[in-house]
Design a protein around this nucleic acid. Structure first.
Lengths: 238, 238
DNA sequence: TCTAGCAATTTTGGATCCAATATGCAATAT
DNA sequence: ATATTGCATATTGGATCCAAAATTGCTAGA
């Protein structure tokens, strides 16, 4: 009967295209994602206050899920909260931004190195697609997503989920500043060229070279960031 | 008057040893810290359910601050929550634990290297104190705190708060397993000896050597962990 | 005119209450 | 006898309500 049960279940699943309903979004996670994206993309400026009431109204919800979302954002480092004073969007000082680049310089080349030997042809074609989409994009607003997609395609095969989680947090914190930097320099063209080089090394199966190019890519972004944007992080709002 | 005001404040602060009252603990942060410690120290087993009602009763509070604490712990990766089913303590598979060791191997040597040239005599004496306290300790229950104190003393001078934050998260996740490992082998003696070596390199101002010893220290712990504890992470409770 | 002090408003933290969902158990049908 | 269904209880997610603290605006006084 065990077999019988499974057969029926599987048949139904195919017929219904069932989804795991216990993983559907709660109000608090919807609000969390929306706030996270708005902060990452810089649509809410660093230092701006996040009023619970106002956010709750916008989502037609009570303040409870808003507060839960703010707690999670605080733990991510995207928001700072003072008791009875409320939450504000966290910014980065120039030092903090530089430190996050340093962090990426430690992690990403190693992740790249370990991903290359595990890449399947479909991984590579996904990466090429992401790379081309990034190069073709003219809209700086979707640059963040495209860059994330490229990173995911390149790094996912490493099978290092913890490293990717930590990297995701680092990217969340500097995304805003990276985008600004890309706009203010020849960053877009250079980044695309460097991406192509990294991808070529991956396709050649040359892990050390890919890691080295990733390092150079990030180091270049770090230098360009520190050079071009002395005033960008002024209102860091600690 | 700006100046006048500030002068008074600072004088009072010195007299009263005043603390920033806006940072005093809220119910949710008290519960958060208590749960975090209980999980880190392994007093609540991986996979154990965390009932909101029960926790609220223990702290004489409502479920609201409990839920906020659980949200934060979820973001830290110490807890896993399913909608309408509740939260359970997150465990680590052997692979996940190994990956966290790899992460530490990337971060800690570099942090050590950058801390050494910035260490003051008082930093060094604090580190020596922490090192001796660790070596002298026989109680495995306070080992976690002592190890954290030693790390803080050694790494704090690096002035890399982001790296230390990420490292803190990594330590939170493996503390339980590290403690178990220390008990089941000659880990305690070996760790103390290795700590002494690292400290000596710091006192000699030999940053590359200190970094190298830190690397060896973690690599040894990783190997010992994977060797001695194939069954320890069985009930990983994903 | 400027500032200290006080009341009114706003905003947050937390408690209580209600609805939605899960879980365990008994009853029933095959 | 076993598997399915219906019901009671337990548990979570969210809304509403209340108290504490912060902020704002006003008034009085120098």
């Amino acid at each position: 009967m065990q077999y019988h049960k499974r057969r029926i279940k599987r048949t139904l699943a195919v017929q219904l295209d069932a989804v795991d309903i216990s993983r559907t979004a709660s109000a608090s996670s919807v609000i969390y994602e929306a706030l996270r994206r708005a902060i990452i993309e810089g649509r809410i400026a660093a230092g701006a206050p996040l009023r619970q009431d106002e956010i709750a109204r916008q989502f037609n919800a009570s303040r409870i899920p808003v507060r839960e979302a703010l707690m999670r954002l605080e733990e991510l480092g995207l928001v700072r909260t003072q008791r009875y004073k409320g939450s504000v969007v966290a910014g980065l000082s120039a030092d903090e931004a530089a430190e996050i680049f340093d962090f990426r310089l430690l992690i990403e080349p190693e992740v790249m190195r370990r991903a290359v030997p595990r890449m399947t042809p479909s991984d590579l074609s996904a990466a090429r697609g992401a790379c081309e989409a990034f190069a073709a994009s003219k809209d700086p607003m979707q640059w963040g997503d495209l860059n994330r997609a490229l990173h995911a395609a390149l790094y996912q095969p490493s099978a290092l989920p913890y490293h990717l989680e930590m990297l995701g947090n680092a990217m969340d914190r500097i995304d805003r500043y990276l985008r600004a930097q890309l706009l203010m320099s020849d960053g877009m063209a250079r980044a695309s060229a460097e991406h192509a080089g990294i991808l070529a090394a991956c396709e050649a199966g040359d892990a050390p070279r890919a890691a080295e190019l990733v390092h150079a890519h990030i180091a270049g972004a770090r230098a360009s960031f520190l050079e071009h944007l002395p005033g960008l992080v002024a209102g860091a709002a600690r």
